[in-house]
Design a protein around this nucleic acid. Sequence first.
DNA 1: TCTGGGGTCCTAGGACCC
DNA 2: TCTGGGGTCCTAGGACCC
Length: 454
Amino acid sequence: MRDTASVLHLDLDAFFAAVEQRDKPSLRGKPVVVGGTGGRGVVATASYEARRFGVRSAMSTREARSRCPHAAFLSGRFPAYRAASELVMAELRAVSPLVEPLSLDEAFVDLAAAGLPDLTLPTVTEVAQRLRARVAEVTGGLTASVGLASSKFVAKVASELDKPDGLTVVPPGTEQELLRPMPARVIPGVGPQTTERLRRAGVHTVADLEALSLDELVRLLGKAHGHGLHAFARAQDDRPVVAEREAKSVSVEGTYDTDLTDRRLMEGLLTRQAGEVATRLRAHGLSGRTVTIKVRLHDFTTLSRSSTLPSPTDAAGVVARTARTLLADLDTSGGVRLLGVGVSGLADWVQEDLFADDAALGDEAADEVAPVDLEAAFPRRRTWPPGADVVHEEHGRGWVWGSGRGVVTVRFETAASPSGPVRSFAEDDPALQRWTSTEPDPGEVTTQPLSSPT
DNA sequence: TCTGGGGTCCTAGGACCC
DNA sequence: TCTGGGGTCCTAGGACCC
């Protein structure tokens, strides 16, 4: 642990929902829920207005709808979130070369690598405030909460303390007095199961945890976890901020609104997922030796089966055939709610001579798959998901307010032109198109750098 | 019709090798 | 008849994170 508050943790507030409110003025000040909108969807992000009704991340969308029926339920526009995230990460890197993104909306910054004149509290505080202002400026008004402390652990705890749009600085030396009264749950790696185990052992707070010996903790939680908690309970955390981390696996999975029972359909879906995995492997110049399938049964029991190949592959056909073979050994007669395919044991090289063969094999193997109409049974993506950007020949840019029964309702409103009407169209109206371009609208006057995500 | 998707890390047992 | 140990790889499952 360092003796300066030079680890910064930044967390964008209600990120996905905030991007939607930024781009769709009618949603400002209103409850917005972004996440899965299907029958088995869960909430990814709820705006603060929706949180007032008890809507939370990871809650089923069904429950969120019953708690807050008048919220806008949107299925998410990842290109827009990624664009906003990249602008924020660029601002962080302008402060210090040592930036560790944890997700689209969160990152650590090591101010000790920033080349500042000093790392005193006034200096780092000013850097943090300037950074928050820059984030708002460059994203068109998104707010961030920031924590500054002597370690990742405490910086992250600190960023939670004044949300949204706040800054908390923990002076070095005061970490333990901050942590002691907090629930043990604030410690990274302490989730529901560990919390329950600790509760049964009479441990509720960080102070309670601190009273346990290393031996007791290891007995209670195992070696790695025990050692980790022993240190965290004392605010000891030497984990460095790491800029580049290599991917260890690539996977695709899907939960279906109704349980699958048709094996040929499952094989078709696995094959399609294998293709997506292979595409992503190739896009990153990776290949891997271990193919894993994941199967969640109707009763939520989750199975995995894996097979390690003699050499790494990035070929769709090889991944697909391996996946289908693994599925063959499982009893899925009760119905399957989730299927997934992943590749791990990644290497950043491909065996050149095998590459051509594998690629050819890939095409063949894709064709081997049972003749089910996958697109009819499970369309790859719905054309008009709620919240999606669209453009109409006559009315211009807008977004999907609702869809179903052959009709799509569009609100013609963007951050740049916030006063458009709401109109309905036939779903197959050729004048209406998904807006997928990452370029700004032709002719659109953009005053906010992010109003047309790139 | 409770319970997403993309990840990481850890544990534990068995095979196999020296 | 009894008696090893360590190391690595692989597999399956589970907890956790955002």
